[in-house]
Amino acid sequence: MTKPRIFHIALGSNKGDKFKNLQNAVDAIFRQIGNTKLISKVYKSAALGFESDDFLNCCLVLESDLQPHDVLGMLLAIEIELGRTRKLKNEYEARVIDLDVVFAEEQIINTETLQVPHPEMHKRKFVLMPLNDLAPKLKHAKLNKTVSELLEVCEDKSVLEPLNIWLKNPSKTLDFSKYNYIAIEGNIGAGKTSLANKIAQDFNARLLMERFADNPFLPKFYKDAQRYAFTLEMSFLADRYQQISEDLAQLDLFTQFVVSDYDVFKSLIFSKITLNTDEYGLYRKLFYLMYKDIPKPELYVYLYQNTTRLQENIKKRGRDYEQNIADDYLEKINSGYLEFLKSQKDFNVKIIDISDRDFVANRSDYLWVLGEICSE
Rank of each mutant, 00 (worst) to 15 (best):
I188H: 01
I188L: 06
G189K: 03
G189R: 03
A190E: 00
A190I: 03
G191D: 04
G191M: 05
G191P: 03
K192N: 06
K192L: 08
K192R: 11
K192P: 01
T193Q: 06
T193Y: 08
T193F: 08
S194F: 12
S194M: 08
L195V: 10
L195D: 07
L195Y: 07
A196R: 06
N197Q: 08
K198D: 07
I199S: 11
I199K: 11
A200G: 10
Q201E: 15
Q201N: 14
D202Y: 13
F203G: 06
F203E: 09
N204D: 15
N204F: 10
R206H: 14
L207G: 01
L208I: 15
M209F: 07
E210K: 09
E210C: 10
R211S: 15
R211K: 15
R211H: 15
F212P: 04
A213T: 09
A213G: 13
A213F: 11
A213Q: 10
A213S: 13
A213K: 08
F217W: 13
F217H: 09
Y222V: 00
Y222M: 00
Y222E: 02
K223Y: 02
D224I: 01
D224Y: 02
A225P: 04
A225S: 13
Q226V: 11
Q226D: 14
Q226M: 10
Y228W: 12
Y228V: 00
